[in-house]
Amino acid sequence: MIRDITIGQYYQTDSVLHRLDPRVKLLGTLVYLVSLFCFHNPAGYAVALLFLILCIRLSHVPFGYMIKGMKSIMFILMITILFNLFLTSGTVLVSFWKITITVEGLKLAITMALRLCMLIIGASLMTLTTTPNHLTDGLEKGLRFLKVIKMPVHEIAMMMAIALRFIPILLEETDKIMKAQLARGADFESGGLVRRARAMVPLLVPLFVSAFRRANDLAMAMEARCYRGGDGRTKMKPLIYAGRDYAAYIILLAYLVISIFLGRWSVMTELLTSL
């Protein structure tokens, strides 16, 4: 039941995107997300959309699966569209009763919705193709320069890795305990707010107990294997850039150049003519 949430989850399959170095994907996602907010004309959107479609095709993640996870943000999307549609002033397109839709409003609603969709799909594409461990490895190595200012980069990355690792385990545990209490006649769905809150007790107490037990076990297991933080620690599978990673960086750069060029075409032409 709880397993239907797909946003931020990893999708197991084999593809170029899956094999890419996590640092490339992190930087790529960042660049892509920023680029989405720099366009002012349709050509820019077209390039960003094309780039996204290309990445989706390369990822081998079924589009249907991606969309399933989007349902949870449908609500936010709707609100954005409606607000932009009805509350933008400009040339009137249609007007009935108290509602007027302007040309500018329509344009804004469409572009905002498009932007939001691309933003979320772009971000989830990264988590769908990168295991949590890989992601934190990438973060740790990518942010190593912060050590200079005494940031405990390794510890933060380790905490993130453990937290991410525990999410599916805790979800599974919740599912199990929920079923066990349902088998004892528990009812999680009916009743008012107070009753429902109280119905959560038989779920939350065992969940916390088990989370603490697991945390304790993990800490002991780590100590038993002499874990002592990041200093002097080497990796079994160190992140090393391969040919495809350099190729990906070049593609990313190309995307950046093209999208800046096209997306800012009007600005450029203005600049050129003024010279």
Binding site: K176, I177, A180, G185, A186, V209
Partner: peptide, 27 residues
């Protein structure tokens, strides 16, 4: 579910009450 009772694997993980007796009373 009251007619078909199911005891899960590792059922001790579902205990939650302050004492044994109240936990058995839950069902």
């Amino acid at each position: 579910r009251s007619h078909v009772g199911l005891v899960f694997q590792y059922p001790e993980h579902q205990l939650f009450e302050v004492d044994v007796f109240s936990d058995v009373c839950f069902g």
